[in-house]
Design a binder for these strands. Structure first.
Lengths: 348, 348
DNA sequence: GTGCTTCATGTAACCGGTTACATCAAGAGC
DNA sequence: GCTCTTGATGTAACCGGTTACATGAAGCAC
């Protein structure tokens, strides 16, 4: 009597069951053209030997790995854990695995990573917010299905998913306006940052359309910038009733500075941020902010990628419009003004 | 002149360079037994064709995938992003990739996951804190190198890494006692969770040894449980001067509830958590907590696993004792013995 | 010249699966 | 009886790499 052999191959099973490898393969993969008794016998033998198919070999001959490569810039914080969560849930639902690859900022490591993926994955989800992506894309073979997440603008059409910062900023301004604010101060992010630029643009558009006063102060995404903005405004005795910071960090800085200055939030000045970092729920007053559903973002990328892998045609640039998460730092809409998440159509 | 072919194989390169596949392999893998001019020529041709080796095929013939399978129970929160971060950094340093596999609680999915790993990875890092892992281990072939993280007790010796929750809880209680606390409330985690059980045990031991009052409230690791605990305590007018929650989430919930109830932290009630999620630094007052260096924990698991893969012998059960990270939510130890009793909140 | 060593290169087997095609037995139709 | 069809099973090629071994040319000693 044969003992369990830890790494039995299909040929071991075939020998032990006195059949050919083809029959074993058929028995285990549920092919119909095999006699039921034989199928059961083979399965029993396979069980007895503790046979588990070698996925690598299977992948090679099927030319399919059922694996999705995930290329991300870094792994800090909750954004990534949420993103991975959404991708994983969706991938496992569709029968795919996730192979993770982090390029720690260095572009050449990104290229190496991309190469290492060849023959290991069926497709890629690539997140590369750095501007240097063009080199990366040059190494992304056309034959490799891939979905881009929040990448900087680039040559050519590719299936892509982006956060609609413009729409998010518009939604925030509309929310502020609905709460009665008329004189908005926007604390902008770094000029070179694409997200910051778009948020500023949305703010400008919405204020112009709604006839609101807008003043823009330069910031840098750090908490201090929010504090400095308030200090400066108070020093010159400026009149304003809302602060919209281009990210939550700066909004928190502004909030703290307002508190110290004895200005009540949201009664005298409303404050809103962007990103929905976990902290926003916990400070007091809780911060109104805008963000997308990150897990859904990841899941959607996986769905589209699997579509591509299955041969679908897809060149679309899809946008995810952030929704406003209204908390204590802003006044709620007074009347029946709409506060729907605004989905913008194709921008240019 | 030949064009770039997207999925050139080694045989394409061989034909194009008018050499054998063996030479191509040697040229690209840096073998010494090849004429330098020929090597350069082959490399040039490979470049021109855009040849990237097929990792799957390579793995099969080398019987090595340079990939580590990571089996985790779920992906919530920052613990996992930190863990993955540590593992990823170390793995990429050692030339390994990470294949992620989440078993959402269901044990049979864990077994399926394990099988799917065969022939895809060289070894596994398995984290299975809640389920009765014995079934899982039964499906973990001896031939598959694996390192266990924080698994429930089980048969036999395996290379393993565990957080010493008992020691961590003891350290927290000692820190609270050193700050003058005498009436401790422990908000416990889920009863079925091994971490929660051990933290409770450490709390019990330390309180008994130090002669502190201890009251245990059942929780579930969610923020709400902390809030509910405070609500219940206040409703009955209980006397207590410290909350030790079995994880940070619940501690944060408690902190917020205390704030809302107008109870000062840490003057009237000190609060401590467990895990050191990044959030704890950001809230106000910053939360005292206990934790291991999670990234290091993950990195160490990878190091040991790679050792196993390389044939080292290793059956050790290694412990990581958490340290207390004292922040604003607890009083710092005063010099030798007594704390000023006036500040201590007997609030009834 | 022959014989021996050394070294670059090629040939073909192998990793462990899948599957097109060949084979063969049984049953149907005449 | 013979032929044709049908369906189960086996044989061997293939996926794309690596590499043991074979080959053959060059170099050297005699």
């Amino acid at each position: 009597m044969q003992h369990v052999m830890p790494n039995a191959t299909i040929r071991d099973v075939a020998r032990e069951a006195a059949v050919s490898v083809a029959s074993v393969s058929r028995a285990l993969n549920g092919a119909t053209n095999i006699r039921p008794e034989l199928r059961d016998h083979i399965r029993a033998v396979a069980d007895r030997l503790g046979y588990v198919p070698h996925a690598g070999a299977r992948n090679l001959s099927l030319a399919r790995s059922s694996t999705i490569g995930v290329v991300v810039p870094d792994l800090h914080g909750e954004f990534f854990s949420e993103l991975m969560r959404g991708m994983d849930r969706q991938a496992s639902e569709l029968g795919f695995h996730l192979l993770l690859m982090v390029m720690h900022g260095e572009a050449d490591r990104g290229v190496t990573a991309l190469h290492a993926m060849r023959g290991r994955v069926d497709g890629l989800v690539v997140m590369a917010p750095q501007i240097t992506s063009d080199e990366l894309f040059a190494h992304l073979p056309k034959s490799m299905p891939s979905v881009l997440l929040n990448c900087a603008p680039h040559e050519g059409n590719r299936p892509e998913l982006r956060v609609d910062n413009v729409a998010g900023a518009v939604a925030v301004i509309e929310h502020l306006a609905a709460g009665g604010c008329r004189r908005i101060v926007h604390v902008a992010g770094p000029e070179a940052n694409i997200d910051a630029q778009e948020r500023l643009r949305g703010t400008r558009e919405a204020c112009a359309r709604l006839g609101l006063d807008l003043r823009v102060l330069q910031g840098d995404f750090n908490e201090d910038a929010g504090t400095r903005a308030i200090t400066a405004l108070e020093a010159e005795g400026a009149a304003y009733d809302a602060i919209f910071a281009a990210n939550d960090n700066m909004a928190v800085g502004a909030l703290m500075a307002l508190k110290r200055a004895g200005i009540t939030v949201p009664e005298q000045v409303a404050v809103a941020g962007f990103d929905n970092i976990p902290l926003t729920r916990l400070i007091s007053p809780a911060l109104t902010t805008a963000s997308i559903d990150i897990a859904e973002f990841g899941a959607r990328a996986v769905v589209r990628l699997v579509g591509l892998i299955d041969g679908e045609r897809d060149d679309a640039l899809e946008w995810r419009a952030p929704i406003v998460i209204a908390r204590e730092s802003t006044r709620q809409p007074t009347d029946n003004t709409t506060e729907n998440p605004i989905r913008r159509g194709d921008r240019e």
